[in-house]
Computed example of a mutant assay.
Amino acid sequence: MRLALVLLLISMQMMLTSCTKPEPAYQWQLPPGFPEPVVPSDNPMSAAKVELGRYLFYDTALSSNQSQSCASCHQQQHAFAEPKKVSKGSTGQPHRRNAQALVNVAYNNSFTWAHDGLAHIESQLLIPLFGDAPIELGAAGQEQAILARLNRQPYPELFKKAFASNKPDFSQVVAALSSFTRSLLSFNSRFDRYAYQQDDSALSQEELMGLDLFFSERLECHHCHGGFNFTQATSHQRQPLDRRPFHNTGLYYTQRTDLADMGYPQHDTGLSEVSLNPADDGRFRAPTLRNIALSAPYMHDGSLATLEQVIDFYAAGGLVSTIDGQISDGRQHPAKSSFVRGFNLTTEEKQALLAFLHSLSDPSFTTNPAYSNPWLSP
């Protein structure tokens, strides 16, 4: 009798479980044939997490003084970059680096400008949330106050759908923000229509000339900005190989403040700060060139204002400038990439290369309502 009762209870539990519909698998918005990104097993994608993350991404309540959100420095109309040389945090403290565009970051195998130990968005997000050099959102020490703000509508239902939780915590905040950021996909440029959708009319003759120049051994652009995502910093289901996407492009080479060495300015020496390897002096991550015309200014410190200046910089094989009264000749840096050798372009060729770079812009990405500010919706 007792065994029969136990079996009946088990049977009822199985029936109840079978009646609970699991959330369907996340549907990546990818063109046919494109590989899916690699997602950490402890934070699988779900539509509910993406939607929760969208609300959090645009919510100034996530900063300690409620003055900034993630979207303050990552603006959709600028391909989720910011049209400033460097960003400022919620307390007004300036960052030393330019805000990177968030385009197809689901495929990134490294994050930030110069860190080879951040393999997932979840790790990178801890820096703007809790970092203090500089303070960005300033959540450190204010966790409970910030979480208390997430009890207002529509958060209770959003957290319940995403995590079956009635009590939000920061691990859920990070997981949801990571999921939304991974959902930011851009594959609808005119270049995509030409290269992947067999639309031969999508690019003009001038843009096709620029394409040929871009992928030529004469200019070498494709070595650091290759593949479907136009960056070496890419991994996906079909490419587990982790290439080291950090390069010294010859931006600076000046006498250090201690007068004992030459190299990048001490306030930002790039990857060498993390690796402690002098050979990594001035090495920064090669960003994607998708939507590059929308995400000015350029380089890790926003020092080049236009794409024309970027082309001139690479054509010269580096930059000659003055820093604190001293001549800086980045062309002479011993760690400069062998691909930055300089080249000559005619006026026609330069315009063609610019035209090609503009063809990588995706207007649907910068206007997609699924990526927009939900707090502005009716």
Rank of each mutant, 00 (worst) to 15 (best):
L3A: 01
I10D: 00
Y26A: 14
W28Q: 12
N43C: 14
A47W: 05
E51V: 06
G53T: 04
R54S: 09
D59R: 04
A61V: 02
A71T: 09
A71K: 07
C73R: 12
Q75G: 07
H78E: 12
H78D: 14
K84G: 08
T91P: 03
N98P: 03
A101G: 06
A106P: 10
F111R: 05
H115L: 14
L118C: 12
S123G: 14
G131Y: 08
A140M: 11
N151I: 01
E157N: 05
E157F: 01
A164K: 09
P168W: 08
D169F: 04
S171F: 06
L177D: 09
R182W: 01
Y194C: 10
Y196A: 05
Q198N: 15
Q198R: 12
A202C: 14
Q205N: 10
L208Q: 02
F215K: 06
R218G: 12
H223A: 11
H223E: 10
C224P: 11
G226I: 13
G227V: 09
G227A: 13
T234F: 00
S235M: 15
S235F: 12
L241Y: 00
N248S: 04
T249E: 13
Y253D: 07
A260N: 09
Y264N: 01
G282C: 13
G282H: 11
A286T: 15
P287R: 13
L289G: 08
A296K: 02
H300G: 02
D301A: 13
G302I: 00
G318M: 02
A335S: 15
F339T: 06
G342S: 07
T347Y: 08
T366C: 04
N373S: 14
